[in-house]
Design a protein around this nucleic acid. Structure first.
Lengths: 221, 221
DNA sequence: AGACGATTAATACAGTTGTTTGAATAGTTT
DNA sequence: AAACTATTCAAACAACTGTATTAATCGTCT
């Protein structure tokens, strides 16, 4: 009875779990080694021993997050051949949105990286390429197909941005809850409803921009 | 010649300027009092003397940001009566987007508050109500008018979210530059182009959701 | 049992942070 | 000029942080 392990797991794993949760909640800088070791029921020196230093632990946590993000990507980008771009897009949003919204511990790399937005670590660059860019490419492919081959790259990119922006808006954010807390979809039904809204809204937008070849520019003022 | 004032302004003003810039760049926690006083060419104790403490200085900076945000709101929500909702929406985005994007010092409250998203201060709540909510209400009004009186509150809210999300996506963000640095509109022409895209895209989306009274739900799988 | 390597524990250390203190200086009034 | 107030300054303080150190403990093998 050392007063430490409340679970059966070993210290190293408990540290990783606690660090994943805390880093996701508050970001690297705002979590102290003492916070982590206390939450894990471990000694202060355990971080140095098992992970060299705080940064080493953070890297391992990011690696875990990257893996879970890549698994997510696989599911989100599933239907490729044999489905219309509209179907692929709807499937994408329906799968992606719930994973963006959910706040449970291993919540994926996005919530981890969100804190890096304020002060990005060099590590971030790698993870952007490996976990985020593939999804962007996937969306580009879909949108280009819907707009038709004649659409300019810039137009395709803007449409991808519109989709991406609507999804990323739902990254858990204590701040946004102040603005419109009651709007946030909570139940899985509400999330599904929101996903379908984003799909419908965006499909209409893309369709309109695809038809008007030389920019609609309604009433140019 | 005390070695301090390089400008003609007094210490208090220099501290406010430096603090505004630094807090906007890095957020409250990541800026030290020594950073601020050094940037302002003032003594370390000047913050305590003029603003009670670091938090007091932060409050005054937020107050300045709130005022500039409210001035912005006035311009952004200008055309009300006598203009179609489409026109008001386009004007809104065209005015709002450049102010979101620009990164110059007194860049408004959004970039200040962005850092609070990670760890919100109680102060934030006030500023959300006074600077952000009015704009949301403005958008609600516009969207409701376009959707028609029969549209449910939830549907109106979702459309407002879609517009808001596309605009907020362009908050300066060192992280997003990694994802799609070259997409970011830089020149005022590019910004205008992006604003018109958001307006066109969203108008099409709203129009589609307005026509299909009982949800389009294309190919419900 | 004894020895050895791996792990955990308590404590100390150096650096940084926000804040305070008390003296020095500048500016104004009498 | 003297007195007084407002401001600036250098130095110090206490709290907190990441890390290193050294001893204690555990499990396993001979």
């Amino acid at each position: 009875m050392t007063g430490a392990a409340e679970h059966g797991t070993d210290t190293r794993t408990r540290l990783l779990d606690a660090a994943m949760r805390l880093f996701t909640e508050r970001g690297f800088a705002k979590v102290t080694v003492r916070d982590i070791t206390a939450a894990a029921g471990a000694n202060l020196a355990a971080v140095s021993y098992h992970f060299r230093d705080k940064a080493g632990l953070y890297e391992e946590v990011l690696a875990l997050g990257l893996r879970s993000a890549q698994e997510m990507n696989a599911e989100v980008m599933l239907p490729r051949e044999g489905h219309s771009p509209e179907e692929r897009m709807r499937h994408y949003v329906r799968q992606y949105l719930p994973r963006i919204i959910r706040t449970d511990g291993r919540g994926g790399i996005y919530q981890l990286l969100k804190h890096e937005m304020s002060d990005p670590t060099p590590i971030a660059r790698t993870y952007v390429r490996q976990a985020i860019m593939p999804r962007i490419e996937f969306l580009i492919e879909i949108v280009r197909e819907m707009l038709g081959g004649t659409a300019s790259d810039a137009r395709v990119q803007r449409c991808v941005m519109s989709i991406q922006a609507q999804c990323l808006y739902f990254l858990p954010d204590p701040f946004k809850n102040l603005v419109a807390g009651d709007w946030q979809p909570g139940t899985s039904d509400q999330i599904r409803e929101m996903a379908d809204h984003i799909a419908d809204f965006s499909l209409a937008g893309i369709r309109a921009l695809g038809e008007a070849r030389r920019g609609p520019r309604v009433r140019p003022r």
